[in-house]
Amino acid sequence: MGIVKRDFYALRGNGGRLLEIFFWPVLELVIWGFVSVFLRANNVPIAVSMLLGAVLLWQVVGRAQGELAAMFLHDVWSRNLLNVFVSPTSLAEFLTGHVIFGAGLIALSTAVMSGLALLLYGFGIATIGPALVPFVTLLVVMGWGLGVVSIAVVIRFGESTQSVAWVLSAAFQPFAAVFYPVGVLPPVAQAIAHAVPASYVFEGLRGVLDGHGIDWSGVAMAGLLDLLLVAGALAFVAHALRHARRTGRLSKFGE
């Protein structure tokens, strides 16, 4: 509860960050929306819903990962991290608090973007149907897994590696098959894509929008990969914290 409140107060006290939460996803939505309108006007056989659905769903991964990392980094920048770590709050409670608040932010930004997509391009996210629930869940969990990895990297290797927090989800985008099928990738990239949970979601999204229904085997595979990612991320952050305590690196976050 303390961490959730801290995140809420921090967001309320920083108007710039509130703006940033919506700025990039909305910008991407507007750009891709007009690209799809242009292509359709020129009789390029492309479904607007596929592009906009992909944009809307990919921002879920970016938001989940980026917000989790940003909330941690704000404590680093404020030189507040040691205050948290000398409180009785455990690492699990610390991460859970950030995840709960992050879930609220994702819901808010997705709602705003969905409204805009409907208003500007007539695309209703409900077009995706009931598949939306497993798809969003799988993408949020992947984002949180990557967010925990970002935190672990900063704890393990120090503040100088914080740029990982801003690029990690983007690094996975080429392999997530967001705007194209996995089949167009070269073989090595395809192998990587098959290990990325989001690739099954976006392949599934195109299938659903094509009227093929939900590919439950893809959903199950993405779920399994998400579980592996989260388990690996939690093991990594626990290791990073142990290492930071052993080497004295944790104390450096107070300097």
Binding site: K5, R6, Y9, G13, W77, R79, N80, G254
Partner: peptide, 17 residues
Amino acid sequence: YLHLPAVLRVGEILDVY
């Protein structure tokens, strides 16, 4: 050498802790 979250108000900081 330690600080508290810069953008939080004093009352909010104490509430969080």
